[in-house]
Amino acid sequence: MVEPSASFFSRARRDIKRNRLIYLMALPILAYYIIFHYAPMYGVLIAFKDYSPSLGILGSPFVGLKWFREFFGSYYFTRLLRNTLLISIYSLLWGFPAPILFALLINEVRNKFFKKAVQTITYMPYFMSLVVVCGILVNFTSSTGVITGIVEALGGPKSNLLANPNYFRTIYVASGIWQNIGWGSIIYLAALSGIDPALYEAATIDGAKRFRQILHITLPGIMPTIIILLILNVGNIMSVGFEKIILLYSPPTYETADVISTFVYRKGIVENNYAYSSAIGLFNSVINFLLVIAANKISTMTTEVGLW
């Protein structure tokens, strides 16, 4: 019994009355998102102000794009951009194919017990906390550590590897692969199990060997999954998480390790330079937002599977 002529307000009043319990439930949710998500979005205004806590967000004088100009003109800008992109690209280049190859290998195993054992063991690093993983890394790459020993045997220096800017990205990317290779393969294994076994049978009858079967049946079968994950990953290329880097880097490695998010953390939280670091954070958020939108558009166009 909804008359189309009823005004928005009378419809709204009726709707609220009818669904008042639902809106009551929504209140704490709304409050949470306003306080912890939308208030900071409003607070990002300080990126355009000479913020001082005593004057507040509105009271602080407006300085326009001063902080952005300062950042783009600074020595750090190119270094941070380079490090952010390089860490992302290397992670993608090495870290993205690894679980796919791993899933293909696991998929070829016929012995159920062996398969289960490999999976159980390789999923394990994913469940270790980042602090513990980094603690182990610090230990293994110290001047007397196991990894340092291996590097030394291969002709590298016998010194603290984490203090060497040349090794930081390698350590970051390799440890990421170590932690995620097993876990990341699950999604591909799920896709692999969806491939019709009749296809393999037919291929065997036609005389296709294992390698040809992988090339012509297995890979096409998981291609949609690969493409979607790849596009989403490319969309996140400018957002390198700061937690692991903060745990692993140190002033001697800033040259290769410092990324935009860690710089924001240092300038803002450590040095209390709120307005300046908010501006850098905003710059990064806007780029991330645009990249994710673009990635999603491309994903929707190419595979008809998007996030929205």
């Binding site: 306080i35 998500h37 208030a39 979005m41 409003y42 607070g43 803002g268 939280i269 937002f289």
Partner: peptide
């Protein structure tokens, strides 16, 4: 309103100030 927060946020510092 909820989904939008997955794609955009005020960032670390404004969050910290809140």
């Amino acid at each position: 309103l909820i989904v939008f927060t997955m794609y955009f946020g005020g960032g670390l510092i404004p969050w910290f100030i809140v």
